[in-house]
Amino acid sequence: MNPEGYFLLSALMLIIGGYGVIVSRNAIRVLMCLEIMMNAANINLVTFSRLAGDLSGQLFVTFSLAIAAAEAAVGFALILLIYRLYGTVEISVLSKLRY
């Protein structure tokens, strides 16, 4: 497949993930769409790394994976805390900034 195919896939996944972050009602689904957006960025990095013949892009993806794992752990812990406080994870219900 051409590099353009990978760039197109990256753009599509970024757009789908952003759409999901905006329209999702469930906080867990918002976090999953964030993971899709990070994956789209990773595809771009690996493709450019392959085109340039430079391994630094793959290293950046490794760092990005570590950050994504940390973000997922803290994010889902926050969601569990919100569920314990409010009894729901619906975004539209959680409109208060102060408990």
Binding site: Y6, I28, L31, M32, E35, N39, N42, V46, T47, S49, R50, Q58, V61, T62, L65, A68, A69, A72, A73, F76, I79, L80, Y83, V89
Partner: peptide
């Protein structure tokens, strides 16, 4: 794209860990 190491890490961390954390969060809420 000739990134074998990243492919394995991707399956281990994303498909393994992140998805399982998401499933736990779904089941607990």
């Amino acid at each position: 794209l000739d990134a074998e190491f990243l492919a394995v890490i991707q399956i281990l961390i994303y498909a393994g860990a992140v998805t399982v954390i998401a499933l736990f969060a779904i089941m607990l809420t």
